[in-house]
Nucleic acid binder design. Sequence first.
DNA 1: ACACAGCGTTTGCAATTGCAAGCAGCGCGA
DNA 2: TCGCGCTGCTTGCAATTGCAAACGCTGTGT
Lengths: 164, 164
Amino acid sequence: MALPKVGSIGEYIREQRQQAKISLRQLAAAAGVSNPYLSQIERGLRKPSAEILNQIAKGLRISAQALYVQAGLIEDREPPSDVITAIRADTNLTERQRQVLIDIFESFRKEKRAEDEQTSQNAHPRHDSGPDDEQPLPEEFLAALEPYAATSRNGNVTQETKEG
Amino acid sequence: MALPKVGSIGEYIREQRQQAKISLRQLAAAAGVSNPYLSQIERGLRKPSAEILNQIAKGLRISAQALYVQAGLIEDREPPSDVITAIRADTNLTERQRQVLIDIFESFRKEKRAEDEQTSQNAHPRHDSGPDDEQPLPEEFLAALEPYAATSRNGNVTQETKEG
DNA sequence: ACACAGCGTTTGCAATTGCAAGCAGCGCGA
DNA sequence: TCGCGCTGCTTGCAATTGCAAACGCTGTGT
């Protein structure tokens, strides 16, 4: 038996590190591990211990739980994309707010996917036939954001004004 | 400096095992580790890897998270909101996106609180007048929304502030 | 051209993990 | 008294972790 999910956690660490725009050596120093070892971990050649994993999580300033889940060390009692469920379950939000949060979240997801494609190698813009289109966001989104966005299209900026 | 918190987790495992009224060998078999090794773990002579820890947790039918907390590998922080927890746990989001979602969510919360104070007489007089109390949303918010809101601007992204 | 600094990777090697086998002690039935 | 089964513990030993040192590569001055 080999390394079932070790590769995935290595990739995940590398993704997070590159997203943070820090070098391998920097993260290694921040995490308190040696750079060659971190290199091997990222490429799935080594199976880091829990302690190392935790230090890396700290170095990355990410949730250690997320890392453990990625490593398959915690049963996914918290699915990685439970955000929508949690939003739906929050009774303190209005329906519109809920929709806004979900829309933003899903648009972030799309962004992530686009970035992944970009990092593969292809730099040319995608506008071909996709399964689901790239519509910016529904009306509700923009409508709900108007009170926050200080850069409105109509030019007038009015924030936090509670109409009574 | 060999064993910082290993002893505590060993004791914890032993407690849980004895509480379950199973022998060391039984737990070892259930967890898929050797009995001598489990013995050494329980007495704090060995520092088990994350994988072993997870297997022991399974053998004990206890939460792996509880075990990791005991091992000092996860901070035992109680999250204030399920939505925020879910956002934090989502591995597909960038740190910036996470912050944006959380900011929006919390601003919604504030809105809700304001409405509640308006409708119910029982309002506690908190902040009198904060200087930045009325801030619409941090820069990150607007920056992240630019691709969605029809507000063309500079797409410059500043680094996040390091805060311990 | 050279030296310098940074990047990620490769290479031995000490230290450690984790296991198979064996050891000592306890309770029980013949 | 044995043997049997169970408890947990100790002992070597292969495999692995994790590191220090060195490697090749790229960019940047001088």
